[in-house]
Nucleic acid binder design. Structure first.
Lengths: 228, 228
DNA sequence: CCCGGATCTGACGACCCGTCAGCTCGAAGC
DNA sequence: GCTTCGAGCTGACGGGTCGTCAGATCCGGG
């Protein structure tokens, strides 16, 4: 599955050379810039072209439409997700669990923050029923969700020591279907991260949000409350 | 604050008569219909006008743009929220808490479901930074969030009996700032409700989602797990 | 039956879309 | 340094929506 070449191919099927790739990249950069400060549905091809110092017709040589250009930008999201999943699969032993929970929440919010503009579009497009964005969203969050499901389904103390390959269904504090629990938790993380500034404006400090999310996460995984 | 008349006023400031109001309503109905099956940003004034059997110019006599028409539709959301808040403030005594938690989650999802199309727009527009929609969203969810915050901040057993006016800060299981905890929980509810079909497609049953959310909610409020 | 205000609409300039055919550019070969 | 040729770029166009008038139409009261 050679996705990279396919993604790079111009709309007429030819593979661009050096100059073409540079132009394509300028168009992508311009798109990313505009994304920071504009509702994406009102980003016009002509705006992107102007900012990239080229013409609309050139844009159409590399992308079908604005949406597809953003999709290319969003592909990068899937990279950071793996890192996050690794963190989730970290140490949930009684001594370390609280730190792990906090770190997961913090890193999730950082991850979201670093890609805020793009994430926003992914959310919007997914909710509007766009299947390509939905697929991308699944790919980006699925790694985290599945890691979380696995952690949730294992007995906390046992999991941190033994291999989790033994898929014995333990009763987790938060429910019986680990994927449902994980999906619920990821929903919480995603939505809070997305609305973080709204909450802040509303007088709720980000620090408090991290804490309450971490507590819920900790409890869902280990059934315990933080020390002290 | 006479908001209703202001909302009804035509764009030129005059208050419409009987015929005018009927036309306005036809335009609103047409908008609601289109909303069900179309990404809202691609709903054209001309579509609404055609479906309402009138002309675009007439549309502009009653609404500034499509957005504002949808905003009027969304005003109705705030009605259902009060009901939900009342349910949240219900009985959290040890015997009833689990039932209450489940009922809250279920009703939240029903509420969302009943207004899915409109809620979707509210979410999208809010995330795009539209202040009018954000305000409306706050109004719709704030009642629930504050009710939840109050329930969370009170000692569960005491709260169900005494007045919660005594605002003593109890340590709640899920965190120290009740509003942060409530906001986190409402985020969870909203996001899961919004992505319900996505999860279902992904093999996660709605029933399981209700359960895991209810468990988290129960724990955040009472610090307990459901009976049996 | 007529009148006046409420309501509606045809028509218009402005703008963006997406697509050609044809032009420009740059580097490889001599 | 010059020519050549194909990759890459763009001007210009038909098609469509937007938002706004001025004027036509409707309707109830006199």
């Amino acid at each position: 599955m050679a996705r990279e070449p396919a993604a790079l191919a111009a709309t007429d099927g030819r593979v661009p050379g050096r100059r073409g790739r540079a132009t394509r990249q300028r168009l992508l950069d311009a798109t990313a810039d505009l994304l920071e400060g504009t509702p994406w549905r009102s980003i016009k091809v002509i705006d992107i072209a102007r900012r990239a110092g080229t013409s609309p017709a050139t844009f159409y040589q590399y992308f079908e439409n604005v949406e597809q250009a953003i999709l290319v930008l969003a592909e990068e999201l899937t990279e950071g997700a793996g890192e996050l999943a690794a963190l989730v699969e970290g140490n949930w032993s009684p001594e370390a669990a609280w730190d792990t929970a906090q770190a997961v929440v913090q890193q999730f919010m950082d991850y979201w923050e670093a890609n805020r503009a793009v994430f926003r579009v992914v959310e919007l497009a997914t909710e509007e029923g766009d299947l390509r964005f939905r697929g991308l969203r699944v790919r980006a969050l699925n790694a985290v969700t599945e890691a979380l499901a696995e952690v949730v389904s294992g007995t906390p103390s046992a999991r941190s020591v033994t291999s989790s390959r033994t898929r014995i269904r333990h009763e987790s504090p938060a429910g019986t279907d680990p994927m449902a629990v994980a999906a619920t938790l990821v929903s919480m993380l995603a939505h809070v991260a997305a609305h973080r500034y709204g909450f802040e404006f509303w007088g709720i400090r980000t620090h408090s949000l991290v804490e309450s999310q971490a507590r819920l996460l900790l409890w869902a995984v280990t059934g315990t409350t933080p020390p002290s």
